[in-house]
Design a protein around this nucleic acid. Structure first.
Length: 568
RNA sequence: CGGGAUGUGGCGCAGCUUGGUAGCGCACCUGCUUUGGGAGCAGGGGGCCGCCGGUUCAAAUCCGGCCAUCCCGACCA
């Protein structure tokens, strides 16, 4: 490609709305342009990188037997009513965009479980046709509350996602492993470190699921990582181990009620009781919730800890307090609550000697001197706090670290969640009976990966693409061709030779000063730069330079292809 | 959704306090010179100053409303 013809304009300064480096460089380099908040156009250079990423994904998914399809982005609303997920639209869990058309109401597909279940279900009638795993790479739409960081979180995004259909859960887990393995290979080829972590399933549903986390400074998530044994889990799902609880029975002193007018929060109480030399860790945080079986429950944890709501649990809302008048919002405490039909579940972190300050279930009052075991009966112990750096690994007991990261992919063992509710999601099994598909789904954020790769591959002068993802392999720059005609001729010749050999070359044939060409080459980040200038040409050489390492050497203009590419 | 900030040619910004009819750098066009790390000179094109309303003889500037964009938080497939 001749740069004089390429649709690209590089910017010396990044637009003010670009905050993170990857975003700034992709915009400055003319790879992408913003159309609206969270909506981006891919210009020729950006699209080429995107295509590289997609090619790797296709290659690895094809190699484990997946088949590519293209499903509609426009979904009839009825499909979503069938699955029951239409009720989630507009919620933060499923911010789908709806449109009205002649054929009725449609949804701009935020994800494709419904469509793929119906589509594959219509084609598969027999266990003999299974297993089948299909995938698609396409645009999805989400009305994100807050688009962020350029391509990292957008309202229109390109995703690759696979869906597996199997005869039963055992076979489904095999398919899951196949795609899981393919995903690991994809990340390896993208040159990204990835950590598959146990996670919670959110709006997609299903049992076992893993997030593929790529450590990055632009990450919006954190995962818990143990250097000791390799344990890795999303903070939303991570548990921790505890030192053996010490005896708590020998506590002395008695419970006293203290007046704490208007001090509903942990921080308020600590501040209010400043004279008592208390910290948040001395307060017993009490949270009212319904557990996964719908039982009203008080959760206890140390006041300096954030609660981690177990999967399936739901915190009390204001209305719920009306049904349980023994609890006073803002002043909740656990004492005697079993009598009112509530269970008390405590985080093991509160199993320590000494007393606590906790709510008195009376407006503007707290209790001090409360001892667990003596004053508070615990029905069940567990891990209810969000893990922080330094907590103990639940597997091996070493200290864990919290790692900032980007969620680059998410895989789910769905089971029958969709095949039980969508029409036609069944087949005739080996025993002659009707059975539903056991499904898995596997999503990967392709456009997001472009941002992550850019974030991980740049220096102060610009992007530094790995060869596997670069829009072109060689950046050929002719210096002063307008002044020395032989330079232009030689550069044209070399360009023609490389192109004929199948090398993807970006040829800077523009009539601009050398400094501009060098700066643009650095900004665009193509792996190999070849420079032809009058002086070198007189000696029959061109300059070869690696964008990544800065290594330079002279190569004969008639050198072999390998030498010109720097492979030799 | 809560908090904060910002909207002035394609991009980055000044001007706003103290109203008087818009400016700088980059980019773009023409000519000449220049040419190994973002060249110089000369000439030129491009902006209903986010939108609507108000105050005023006069509004980019003051007042009100709205919209958009970014950051932090909440949330997140």
């Amino acid at each position: 490609m001749r740069m004089s013809r390429l649709l690209v304009r590089t910017l010396r300064e990044a637009p003010a709305d670009a905050e993170v480096v990857s975003h700034q460089l992709l915009v400055r380099g003319g790879y992408i342009r913003r159309l609206a908040s969270g909506v981006y156009s891919f210009l020729p250079l950006g699209l080429r990188v995107l295509h590289r990423i997609e090619a790797i994904i296709r290659d690895e998914l094809d190699s484990v037997g997946c088949q590519e399809v293209l499903l509609p982005a426009l979904h009839p609303l009825e499909l979503w009513e069938q699955s029951g997920r239409a009720a989630m639209f507009g919620s933060e869990a499923l911010p789908a965009l709806q449109v009205e058309g002649r054929g009725g109401s449609f949804v701009l597909g935020p994800t494709h479980e419904e469509v793929v279940t119906v589509t594959v279900g219509a084609e598969v009638d027999s266990y003999r046709q299974l297993p089948v795993t299909v995938y698609q790479i396409q645009v999805k739409f989400r009305d994100e509350a807050r688009p962020r960081f350029g391509l990292l979180r957008t309202r229109e995004l390109i995703m690759a996602d696979a869906y597996s259909f199997d005869v039963d859960p055992v076979a489904m887990r095999e398919s899951y492993q196949d795609v899981f393995g393919a995903y690991l290979k994809i990340f390896a080829r993208l040159g990204l470190d990835v950590y598959p972590v146990e996670a919670s399933s959110g709006a997609i549903g299903g049992d076992v699921n893993h997030e593929f986390m790529v450590p990055s400074v632009v990450g919006e998530d954190h995962f818990v990582s143990c250097a000791g044994c390799g344990y890795a889990a999303n903070v939303e799902a991570a548990e921790r181990a505890f030192a053996t609880p010490e005896s708590v029975a020998d506590t002395v002193g008695e419970v006293v009620e203290i007046h704490t007018p208007g001090q509903a929060g942990i921080g308020d109480v600590v501040e209010f009781l400043a004279g008592e030399n208390l910290t948040a860790a001395d307060l017993l945080k009490s949270m009212a919730a319904f557990d996964d079986e719908g039982r009203p429950t008080i959760m206890l944890l140390a006041g300096d800890r954030e609660v981690r709501l177990p999967s399936g649990w739901r915190l009390f809302e204001d209305d719920d307090f009306a049904s349980y008048p023994s609890l006073v919002k803002g002043f909740i405490g656990p004492i005697g609550q079993q009598e009112h039909g509530l269970r008390v579940v405590a985080d093991l972190g509160v199993a320590r000697p000494g007393t606590w300050v906790t709510g008195a279930n009376r407006v503007d009052h707290h209790l001090a001197g409360v001892a667990i075991g003596r004053d508070v009966e615990v029905d069940e112990w567990g891990s209810l706090a969000v893990v922080v750096s330094g907590d103990l690994c639940p597997r091996c007991g070493s200290g864990v670290e919290l790692v900032r990261s980007v969620e680059a992919a998410h895989t789910f063992q769905l089971g029958y969640k969709y095949s039980d509710v969508m029409a036609g999601a069944s087949f005739v099994a080996e025993d002659g009976d009707e059975a539903n598909f056991s499904m898995g789904c596997y999503g990967m954020g392709v456009s997001r990966l472009l941002a992550v790769v850019a974030e991980e591959n740049h220096d102060e002068r610009g992007l530094v693409w790995p060869a596997s993802l670069a829009p072109y392999q060689v950046h050929l720059a002719a210096l002063g061709a307008g002044r020395a005609l032989e330079v232009g001729v030689a550069a044209d010749e070399l360009y023609g030779r490389l192109v004929a050999a199948g090398v993807e070359v970006l040829y800077d044939d523009r009539d601009v000063s050398p400094g501009v060409k060098f700066a643009d080459a650095d900004l665009l980040g193509i792996p190999v730069r070849l420079v032809i200038g009058a002086k070198g040409l007189a000696r029959g050489v061109v300059e070869w330079r690696s964008r990544a390492t800065g290594d330079e050497r002279e190569v004969g203009i008639d050198a072999s292809l390998d030498e010109l590419l720097g492979v030799a």
